[in-house]
């Protein structure tokens, strides 16, 4: 039953995303923005006079684009509350998680797909080299790693819908700032690097860079494994968050009330 709920929710999520875009608005709107965002940060290499930084930031921002899309499930879920469908979901006997997890699963596919499109569009301009066949599986690991934190933001945003977008942006930019996207993490103090280890993208991106330079190595597999572990940990916390919200809401009748 749980799988059927998640599958139906996934179908709704896919259709919902399709209805938001035409191919023109997707390509000349959203993809154009992601390409410009990647170039904006890659261009930092021009300013500091380093071709290596251009390539480093290009890979980092392609991967960060996946996290941007997947963490977006947080504020998207908060909209559920404003649309008035939440009391019906709370009244249903099953957990909220398969509904929201299924509904948002297309973000993973979209994030990875868009990451690859951005890479294909931008890489020829930069002239990068490496084992790029490893890009799709590594981006999928980053998407899965980010999914848990995205769901955790969703569990928070559904309690505080007015904060959804703000928390999403704060978490995303903190991850990008300290996560080794544009520059090696070694520039930061040890304790900042430690904090970063608990965020998604960080290990996945390290694994991706290792795969691109040295191919399939134990170090790369280890980092991608850590990325999935971080995702699983946040997923567990999100699970508890959704359970607390639905139980609390049923008990005190505040589900449909503004925070």
């Amino acid at each position: 039953m749980t799988i059927r709920i998640a599958a139906n929710a996934a179908r709704v999520g896919y259709r919902e995303t399709r209805s938001q875009y035409t191919w023109r608005s997707w390509l000349f709107g959203w993809v154009l923005r992601l390409v410009a965002q990647t170039l904006f940060f890659a261009a930092m290499g021009i300013l500091v006079g380093s071709d290596d930084l251009i390539e480093f930031a290009l890979i980092g921002n392609v991967a960060a684009g996946v996290t941007l899309m997947v963490l977006g499930i947080g504020p998207d879920t908060a909209w559920e509350r404003s649309q008035g469908t939440l009391p019906l979901l709370i009244a249903a006997p099953r957990s909220l998680l398969p509904v929201f997890a299924g509904r948002n699963v297309f973000h993973l596919v979209q994030g990875v797909g868009e990451g690859l499109v951005i890479f294909v569009l931008v890489a020829p301009w930069v002239g990068v080299e490496g084992n790029y066949l490893w890009l799709p599986p590594a981006l999928m690991a980053i998407a899965l790693g980010s999914y848990g934190l995205g769901l955790f933001i969703a569990a928070f945003a559904i309690r505080k819908p007015r904060w959804g977008n703000t928390i999403y942006n704060l978490v995303y930019w903190t991850t990008v700032a300290i996560g080794g996207v544009n520059v090696s993490r070694t520039v930061f103090p040890h304790w900042v690097q430690q904090v970063g280890s608990f965020l998604p993208l960080v290990h996945g991106l390290t694994g991706l860079r290792e795969l691109l330079s040295n191919g399939f190595t134990g170090a790369a597999v280890g980092q991608l494994g850590l990325e999935l572990a971080v995702g699983a940990a946040w997923f567990t916390v999100a699970l508890a968050g959704f359970a607390l919200f639905s139980q609390g809401g049923r008990k005190d009748g505040t589900i449909d009330l503004v925070e």
Binding site: S25, G29, W30, R33, A36, F40, A43, M44, L47
Partner: peptide
Amino acid sequence: AAITFQNSASYPILLLGGAFVPLDLL
């Protein structure tokens, strides 16, 4: 649905507007 275009307004303008890297270096 034009929220997509609203999103697209950000980085193209920031890139060509030299927000970090001056236009002359592009």
